[in-house]
């Protein structure tokens, strides 16, 4: 009954079974087996790449209780600021830096003034504290008036003093609305920590509300803390840039302006010289 053919099939089946088990459970298992979440991780990885390129970052956030046990674990997606975006830096106390867009502060005190401040008050004044008010100035600047640095200031403003005019809003003008100094030695005084707000001014100088910031003119945000030359050094007629610096001589200037620059720099220029010759002379003198 059991023929050779049947035995042959028995052998074939046995050998096939052994071969299949070895093939699938040893060789293919070694080559093709992966953790159960293999594709899931791969998909997360690819999503992370896509989200990162779109400016988002994925962080695995783990919440723990006071005993240190993990209570909740989830993926948190938070927007990531692009690298190119300028980060606001707080202005140093010594320099009247530009008022940053995000964290604007009131006009900082010039470099010469902190000394007086330290003399009158043991604790150093923060950069946000009001600046000195010249004695000649009878009334504090109103909200609509621009802040102008007076030319007849007894001690010239330091190099860091801003030469541009700041159209001051009520908040920026706030430091000026302080009590007047009593003497020349006390030219720079600290304001009352809790000054009584004068009519028409904002009560709190410490922080500028956001809505005021948004309405503040661009001149504030675009200002650059470049040291301006002393006004007395620059004669009238020399063309100035917006930041108060003398313009670099160029052929686009008028002849009179080039002449003024040459005079200012002490360069002798023949009266019938052309603009090109003037430029050449100025450049050679530099």
């Amino acid at each position: 009954m059991i023929t050779n053919e049947v035995l042959r099939y028995l052998g074939i089946a046995f050998a096939s079974s052994v071969l299949l088990i070895v093939l699938s459970k040893v060789i293919m298992q070694f080559l093709f087996r992966r953790p159960a979440d293999y594709y899931l991780k791969e998909e997360y990885r690819q999503e992370e790449i896509i989200l990162n390129s779109a400016g988002f970052s994925i962080t695995d956030e783990v919440e723990t209780n006071p005993e240190g046990e993990v209570t909740e674990e989830h993926i948190h997606v938070q927007p990531q600021l692009p690298e190119t975006e300028e980060k606001p830096e707080p202005a140093p106390a010594e320099e009247p830096a530009a008022i940053p867009e995000e964290k604007p502060e009131p006009e900082p005190a010039p470099t010469a003034e902190p000394e007086a401040i330290t003399e009158t008050k043991p604790e150093p004044a923060p950069a946000a504290e009001p600046v000195a008010i010249p004695e000649e100035k009878p009334e504090p600047a109103s909200a609509a008036e621009p802040v102008a640095i007076p030319e007849e200031k007894p001690e010239p403003a330091p190099a860091a003093a801003p030469m541009y005019e700041i159209p001051v809003s009520a908040t920026v003008a706030e430091p000026l609305a302080e009590p007047k100094p009593k003497s020349v030695t006390e030219l720079l005084v600290l304001p009352d920590p809790n000054p009584a707000p004068e009519p028409g001014t904002q009560p709190s100088p410490a922080a500028i509300p956001e809505e005021k910031l948004e309405s503040a003119p661009e001149a504030i945000t675009e200002a650059k803390p470049e040291p301006a030359p002393e006004p007395k050094d620059i004669p009238a007629g020399v063309p100035l840039t917006k930041s108060g610096k003398p313009r670099k001589p160029s052929m686009s200037m008028k002849k009179e302006e080039l002449l003024a620059i040459a005079e200012w720099k002490g360069v002798a220029v023949p009266p019938d010289a052309t603009k090109a010759e003037m430029l050449r002379l100025i450049e050679s003198a530099e």
């Binding site: 023929t3 099939y9 028995l10 089946a13 046995f14 079974s17 088990i21």
Partner: peptide
């Protein structure tokens, strides 16, 4: 019988 042999031969290694 061939198919029964396949069943037996295949099951033993399992």
């Amino acid at each position: 019988l061939e198919y029964i042999a396949i069943f037996i031969g295949g099951s033993v290694p399992f």
